[in-house]
Each structure stands twice: as C-alpha cells, then as structure tokens.
Simulated scan of single mutants.
Amino acid sequence: MELTVYLAGQIHDDWREQLIQKAKEKKLPLHFVSPQTNHDKSDDIGEEILGEQPNQFFRDDAASSINNLRTQVLMQKSDVVIALFGEKYKQWNTAMDASAAITMNKPTIIVRPESLIHPLKELSNKANVTVETIEQALEVLAYIFE
C-alpha cells in the first residue's frame, strides 16, 4: 500500500525536501504532492493562461482561482494532509489548506512550533494529530504501516 500525502504550508524554505528525504531514508511507501512551490509560477499562472489582466487585483484573482483548483484536485486525491506552520512566514495559505482538508474529512497532521500553540488551538483541535516537527509527522505516518 502506498499513501499519497499532500504537503500544505509555506513555500519559502526546504521543509518539503527535508521531509521527502527522511521518508525515503525510512523507506516509507509515500507519494508526495503539494501546492505550486515555484512562487513566480504561482503568481504568474493566471496571466500565463488567461492573458494580461487589467490590474493587480484581477491578476491575483486569476492566479488564485487556478491555484485553488490545483490544490483542491491534489488534496482530494491525497490520503493524508500534512500542514506545516512555521515561525517566519505568514500562514494564511496553510490555515486555509488545513481547514479545507479537515472539511474534506482528510486525515490531517498539523506541524507547528510550540510558540504557535495558542493561535492554532482551534485548528489543532480539529486536526487528527498535531506535532512540533516534521520528524514527528513522519513517525505518525510510519505507525500506519506497523
């Protein structure tokens, strides 16, 4: 059995690559998908497909509708969602993705540092599991195969 894992969360560091590498080292039968991690591609996709937009509002709106469709399709095809909240970057997309996963009844693991316990308490309460590190998230997934 192989599980598909959607990796929601910030795109400004290499946490996904770290998690994927650690999963390979553990020989876990996991396939990973994620939002578009190329920030420029994500921002430009609306105009790439629909053409130049009249202003920044419409440019962002076009890109977000296409990115939201991509996220919804990949998340619906996933078996599990890992949503990482970091200390450094704004977390709106992560919160939206985690909330969507929970609404879709997708098993959800939230990764968040201790400093975010209070602001994420309601979301953590709705998730299946909340951990502090990507290593702990992988241990939760590894337990499925035991």
Rank of each mutant, 00 (worst) to 15 (best):
N105G: 11
S78A: 15
A100S: 09
P35W: 04
D40I: 15
E139S: 13
V33W: 14
Q56C: 01
T37D: 03
S64L: 14
T37S: 00
K90R: 07
Q56H: 08
F85L: 05
G51D: 04
S64E: 09
E114K: 15
E132S: 13
W92L: 11
M75T: 02
I117R: 14
V129P: 03
K24T: 04
D60Q: 14
V140R: 04
E139C: 04
W92A: 08
Q36T: 12
D61Q: 07
K77M: 15
K126S: 04
P107S: 07
Q53T: 06
F58K: 04
H31P: 00
S64N: 03
L84I: 10
T130I: 06
N128I: 13
S34V: 03
E52Y: 11
D61C: 07
L84E: 00
N38Q: 11
Q36P: 03
I144V: 14
L69F: 15
L50D: 00
L138M: 05
I109G: 00
K77W: 12
A62S: 08
V111F: 11
S65Y: 08
A137Q: 03
D61M: 15
L30Y: 02
A95V: 03
F145A: 02
V131G: 01
S42V: 06
I82A: 08
I49Y: 12
Q36C: 10
K121S: 05
P29A: 08
I117A: 10
T108W: 07
N105D: 11
E122N: 05
K121E: 08
Y89M: 11
T103N: 12
I110Y: 09
Q36D: 06
P54S: 07
Q72W: 09
M104T: 05
A137N: 01
E114L: 14
K27E: 05
N105K: 15
T71N: 09
Q53F: 13
P107H: 05
S65W: 14
V73S: 01
P119K: 13
L84W: 09
E52Q: 06
G86Y: 08
E135V: 11
I144L: 14
S115G: 02
A83Q: 06
F57W: 15
A100G: 05
K27R: 12
A83W: 08
V73I: 15
N68Y: 07
I109D: 00
K22I: 08
E135L: 15
S78N: 07
H118D: 00
V111C: 01
Y89R: 12
V33T: 13
D43K: 15
H39S: 06
T133L: 15
N128D: 12
